[in-house]
């Protein structure tokens, strides 16, 4: 491999599930008493390899998310996910630009903006200071009083809702946006920096108003990771969702030691859509879920 990144293949089935409030894993029965889950991304398994000394790795992996179906979603989809040792987020963004230039073979524009810059420019609100109530009032003014039913009492949900409704559709087409420095409440599995305000070392890639990839400078602290999992499980319980087992193997791997690295997952089906000009994900799948 040109870049000395090893291709790996990890299991799709796992004893653990994603704890994320907004992700529902498919489950299946191993035996009458033992349940397994289909991965929502290969992230946990790949981090276990990183911790055991694999070096930089990549994988093209089938991933599964319940009830995600639409013009840009299929419940079974494909991620291209890769991890680079000793890469900062900027290094990874540069590598991603290289890849996108290979894919699109023409001069497309790239721009890197912080979450705060783009959010404030298009909504007038500072995402690091805004309250959930202010976000919901803004949504109401924009004609979406129902937003608070959708977002519940989660600030991160409110930010995501406002971003996807009033920021994402206004991004320039034909421009690849790397949105960086997410509010700390949206850190997921990313490291926090020491800036003021504290932001998450995470980026999302948007192209033609479509979310294409999500990258982190990876959280390596096992204790903090466990706390985040526990917090997520608490949120799931409050929302009345199924209790799911957190990934103890991942936590063990993190305690053993995850090397400093950055990783990104890109929706391969969406990349194909953008490359071919397809208007629906069904056009780039052999058999979409309704005909699977």
């Amino acid at each position: 491999m040109q870049k000395n990144v090893l291709e790996v293949d990890t299991p799709v089935l796992s004893a653990a599930a994603s704890c994320d409030l907004n992700l529902d894993s498919f489950s299946t029965d191993l035996t009458k008493t033992k349940q397994l889950y289909l991965q929502t991304s290969p992230e946990f398994a790949m981090k276990r390899l990183l911790a055991s000394g694999s070096g930089s790795i990549f994988q093209i992996a089938k991933s599964f998310r319940q009830a995600e179906q639409g013009r840009f979603h299929n419940p079974e989809f494909t991620l291209l996910e890769w991890y680079r040792l000793d890469f900062t987020l900027d290094d990874l963004i540069n590598e991603m630009i290289e890849l996108l230039m290979l894919c699109f073979g023409r001069n497309i524009g790239f721009t890197t903006v912080t979450y705060q810059q783009i959010f404030q420019q298009l909504t007038g609100m500072n995402p690091h200071q805004v309250t959930l109530g202010e976000l919901m009032s803004y949504a109401t003014e924009q004609g979406n009083p129902e937003a608070s039913d959708i977002c519940g009492n989660h600030l991160a949900n409110g930010l995501d809702y406002v971003f996807s409704q009033y920021v994402q559709p206004k991004l320039k087409k034909d421009m690849v946006y790397f949105v960086t420095n997410y509010p700390a409440c949206m850190a997921m599995l990313a490291k926090l920096d020491k800036g003021t305000p504290v932001t998450a070392q995470r980026f999302e890639v948007y192209f033609n108003n479509l979310e294409l990839a999500n990258g982190y400078e990876e959280l390596t602290d096992a204790v903090e990771q466990k706390q985040r999992f526990q917090q997520e499980l608490l949120e799931r319980r409050e929302a009345g969702l199924d209790d799911v087992p957190m990934d103890k193997h991942l936590l063990a791997a993190l305690s053993h030691g995850l090397p400093d690295c950055s990783g990104v997952a890109m929706g391969l089906d969406r990349l194909l859509m953008l490359m071919t000009g397809a208007t629906s994900i069904d056009e780039v799948l052999t058999f979409p879920i309704d005909r699977a």
Binding site: E68, F72, H73, H154, N157, D160, F163, S164, M186, E204
Partner: peptide
């Protein structure tokens, strides 16, 4: 028209 949206890591709608 109906479009399924799942923003970033946010709630589906």
């Amino acid at each position: 028209e109906n479009e399924f949206v799942r923003p970033g890591k946010g709630p589906a709608f």
